[in-house]
């Protein structure tokens, strides 16, 4: 459910910050699913997976935000539609 919401957010919002947030929600949802799996099977694997997801999310967000910062300096609007100088 969270995952779907995140997906909807990803598809509807053009603002880059929002896209990143939506991705974050999706990752969180996956993590939740892993923990649920871990709960169901009574094993710690899923929880460990969640730890990894957390770490990866942190790394991803930091790189992503740095990228956006840099982008913002050039295009203050921060709208992914402006990022279309190249033909899609």
């Amino acid at each position: 459910m969270l995952f779907t919401l995140g997906l909807i957010g990803l598809l509807t919002r053009r603002n880059l910050i929002f896209t990143l947030m939506s991705v974050e929600v999706m990752l969180n949802a996956s993590g939740l699913a892993f923990v649920a799996g871990s709960y169901q099977w009574g094993r710690p694997d899923g929880q460990i997976m969640f730890l990894f997801i957390l770490a990866m999310a942190a790394a991803e967000v930091s790189v992503g935000l740095a990228l956006f910062l840099q982008f913002h300096r050039r295009h203050p609007a921060l709208d992914s539609d402006t990022a279309s100088e190249m033909r899609g």
Partner: peptide
Amino acid sequence: AVELVSLLLMAGLVGAYHLG
């Protein structure tokens, strides 16, 4: 996997540093 995570974080760190 923990070692890999450390490498992962390093990549994130370096990447963010360079881009930021």
